[in-house]
């Protein structure tokens, strides 16, 4: 299959602006202290290994995976219905088409569908909290879900994670692979969150907070939030030599 983006494949990738990404060692986020490498990272030539990667299409999805708010049998999850809607682009504003987005989250009580989440909050039998979408040719995606609850982090002195959604994206290659989290505007816990505040650059941090946007919601049914994602991309001008 030939599309416009393929003519871009051999262009050079931008390197990450360090302040736009959280450093591995973020002492307030305690477990980074023994999991962040001590040694500097080595340069990796950007070869075919890095400029290729797994690609996905709509055909990889099962019907309605974008909708987390009902289970397979059609039973409704408990919580405030919300739409998450946005565009995925690369750094130069080109749409990231056919990009797989995986979403996972806690239920409205702040509990994950996971054996290791043993805290005393109720599970919701109608909410698994996992969904997938593939962007269209404009880079557009949309999820229907319920707003997750905040949850306390064990043995942390009553530190609570703000409501957040986890997102995993592939883009066109190994170079654009990333996993992130997004947050709700105006939540008082955002200010106190060690993971969100691990990002040094103020603008980069703010871009992880969704925008309340009634236009992308569903009238008298679901609130709307807009969240745009920028993946690492290639320079607009091909490198010569």
């Amino acid at each position: 299959m030939i599309d416009d983006t393929e003519t871009q494949e051999n262009r050079e990738y931008w390197e990450y602006e360090p302040s736009s990404q959280p450093p591995y060692l973020t002492p307030n986020y305690k477990s980074t202290v023994i999991r962040s490498p001590n040694k500097p990272q080595y340069k990796l030539p950007r070869t075919l290994t890095e400029t290729t990667g797994p690609l996905f299409t709509q055909d990889d999805l099962v019907a309605d995976e974008y909708d987390l708010s009902v289970n397979a049998k059609g039973d409704a999850a408990i919580g405030s219905l919300m739409v998450m809607d946005g565009f995925v682009t690369d750094e130069d504003g080109r749409p990231a088409a056919n990009t797989l987005i995986e979403l996972w989250q806690a239920n409205s009580a702040g509990k994950y569908h996971h054996l290791m989440d043993t805290r005393d909050a109720p599970g919701d039998p109608n909410f698994i909290g996992a969904g997938r979408a593939v962007t269209d040719s404009e880079g557009h995606y949309r999820f229907m879900t319920i707003k997750p609850g905040a949850y306390p982090v064990p043995n942390s002195g009553n530190y609570w994670r703000p409501p957040h959604l986890h997102l995993s994206l592939f883009g066109r290659s190994f170079m654009s692979r990333m996993i992130t989290q997004c947050y709700f505007p105006g939540d008082p816990l955002n200010e106190l969150d060690h993971i969100l505040h691990g990002v040094p650059d103020v603008d980069a941090k703010e871009r992880l907070i969704m925008t309340f946007d009634p236009v992308v919601g569903v009238h008298e049914h679901a609130l709307g939030y807009r969240f745009d994602i920028v993946l690492r991309g290639r320079r607009a001008t091909p490198m010569v030599g």
Binding site: E17, D201, G233
Partner: peptide
């Protein structure tokens, strides 16, 4: 002039396996 820096990465956290 229209270049935007990529979205910041964040930890995958402990509770991803049922989704990924």
């Amino acid at each position: 002039d229209s270049k935007t820096t990529p979205s910041a990465g964040q930890t995958v956290g402990p509770f991803f396996n049922y989704a990924l």
